[in-house]
């Protein structure tokens, strides 16, 4: 009976490569349980704790001058670090994917360094370089340039920590695409810049977008490296993660969780934006990745 052979939905039918129903249920259950306990529950806790004394207290604690300053600083740092890493990341990915040169392997390894090195070490590197007792400290002091315990130090540390996101997203993509499209464009008379804008950029725009989103989330959330170079001056060099820690250590639970909920909200917005982009431009995405 041919219908029975082809009807996958008929009871008792199972693809020869599919697992037994019990195994399937177990796998799905484990994954969901893990997600629930380790990811979803903490996220809910953050919002519950933030709103535990009511919305008025929540809003008031966010209106605190030091917290507002921390939000402003976080946005400023991200606004500098993300575009900088956008440019560096595209340049590095371009160099690695499209050219052959000496030291390419070294460069590829170095790009991953910020991921493998502890953020605290990253912060200390800048203290040793630019701090008052560091190598360049005396010279900087003589010229009245403040890097450590000031905004420039925080920006530098953030750029260091978030460097790999854009580059790592783009390198495999650009390597897979090769340089034939670019060769075709220049053979048709396009200049290097036209080729980049009209051919390369559209080819990598999705990877670039993901890279920037991840880079931005990390830039706003970075704690370790920034903590070392910031100096924790309230209202001046505290970013949001640092401010949250201070509030928490001062037993200001609601204020700490209110600020934390803002950061968590940012993470959720990042995810939503990513999903919306995928849903809205899914067809085009698929055709580009084909």
């Amino acid at each position: 009976m041919p219908d029975r052979v082809h009807d996958a939905s008929s009871p008792g039918w199972r693809s020869p490569t599919a697992e037994a129903p019990l195994v399937k249920a177990l796998l799905i259950g484990t994954a969901l349980l893990f997600l629930g306990v380790f990811l979803l529950a903490p996220l809910i806790t953050v919002f519950v704790a933030a709103l535990s004394k009511g919305a008025a207290v929540f809003v008031a604690s966010l209106g605190d001058a030091d917290t507002l300053a921390a939000i402003r600083l976080t946005l400023l740092v991200a606004a500098i670090a993300v575009p900088a890493n956008l440019v560096f990341g595209v340049a590095a990915a371009w160099a690695i994917a499209k050219y052959e040169f000496r030291g390419k392997t070294l460069l590829t390894t170095l790009i991953d360094l910020p991921f493998s090195v502890s953020p605290v070490v990253a912060g200390l590197i800048y203290v040793i370089l630019f701090g008052a007792h560091g190598y360049l400290g005396p010279w900087l002091n003589a010229h009245n340039i403040q890097i450590i315990f000031a905004v420039p130090g925080i920006v530098l540390a953030t750029i260091f920590v978030t460097f790999p996101f854009v580059a790592r997203e783009l390198i495999p993509l650009m390597q897979k695409q090769g340089s034939q499209d670019e060769e075709a464009a220049i053979s048709l008379g396009a200049s290097g810049w036209q080729t980049f804008l009209r051919v390369t950029l559209p080819n990598i725009k999705w990877g670039l977008m993901y890279g920037v989103l991840l880079c931005n989330a990390r830039a706003m959330g970075e704690f370790g490296a920034v903590s070392v170079v910031s100096g924790h001056i309230r209202g001046q060099t505290n970013t949001m993660p640092l401010q949250i820690e201070i509030l928490y250590n001062d037993y200001q639970w609601v204020a700490a969780f209110a600020a934390a909920s803002l950061l968590a909200l940012l993470a959720l917005v990042t995810l939503v934006v990513k999903s919306v982009l995928e849903w809205r431009f899914g067809d085009e995405l698929a055709s580009v990745h084909r």
């Binding site: 034939q180 499209d181 220049i186 053979s187 008379g189 055709s287």
Partner: peptide
């Protein structure tokens, strides 16, 4: 001369059409 100045039509093996 650069590639652009040569004014050649080049058809690639894998076509290299601009997908977008």
């Amino acid at each position: 001369k650069t590639v652009q100045e040569r004014n050649v039509g080049f058809v690639f093996q894998s076509y290299a059409l601009f997908r977008h």
